[in-house]
Simulated scan of single mutants.
Amino acid sequence: MTSWNPADLAAIDADGELHVAAHRPDGTLRTPRIVWHVVVDDALYLRSVRGTDGAWYRGVQRTGTGEIDAGGVRSEVTFTRDDAHDDAIDRAYHAKYGGGSAVQAITSPAATATTLRVEPR
């Protein structure tokens, strides 16, 4: 497991939106999608607001790798399913994005079932 450079992680965390693109099996990148992200315990997490039906999430499931771009940081990454910190991630989404309907969706059981830890490659 590779760790984020603290300055890069802070820059990513400070950005409100993150672009994520999964690798296709042939190594090319899918079309980037904008997602919300949070940092918990020095780890970067993403969820699909559409649950397992999210196109970007389905792409990530195929290869487990891709690219992110946020806060001026562009990085090749791996995605790993991680449900060990779901309560803390829910709190982080509420703290970062508020309590509106979009946050209710990203902290719903369907979205929580797609929690991914994102690590640099």
Rank of each mutant, 00 (worst) to 15 (best):
M1L: 14
T2N: 15
S3A: 15
W4Q: 10
N5M: 10
A7P: 07
A7N: 09
A7M: 07
D8N: 13
L9V: 06
L9Y: 04
A11I: 00
A11Y: 00
D13G: 05
D13T: 02
D15N: 10
G16S: 11
E17M: 04
V20D: 04
V20M: 04
V20S: 09
A21D: 02
A21G: 04
A22S: 15
H23R: 15
G27D: 10
L29G: 09
R33H: 15
V35G: 00
V39E: 00
A43D: 15
Y45R: 06
L46C: 01
L46E: 02
L46A: 00
S48D: 02
S48M: 06
V49L: 06
G54E: 07
A55P: 04
W56Q: 03
V60C: 04
T63Q: 05
T63D: 07
G64V: 14
G64A: 07
T65G: 13
G66K: 13
E67H: 08
E67K: 14
E67W: 13
D69A: 14
A70T: 01
R74W: 03
R74V: 08
S75R: 15
E76L: 14
T78I: 15
R81V: 12
D82S: 03
D83E: 08
D83Q: 10
H85G: 09
H85F: 05
I89Y: 01
D90P: 01
R91V: 06
H94W: 14
H94M: 09
K96S: 05
G98F: 11
G98D: 02
G98T: 03
G100I: 01
S101P: 15
A102K: 08
V103T: 08
V103W: 03
V103A: 01
I106L: 03
I106H: 06
I106Q: 09
T107D: 03
T107Q: 04
T107W: 05
S108N: 09
S108M: 04
T112N: 10
A113G: 08
T114C: 13
L116A: 10
L116D: 10
R117E: 05
V118D: 03
E119K: 11
P120H: 10
P120R: 13
R121K: 14
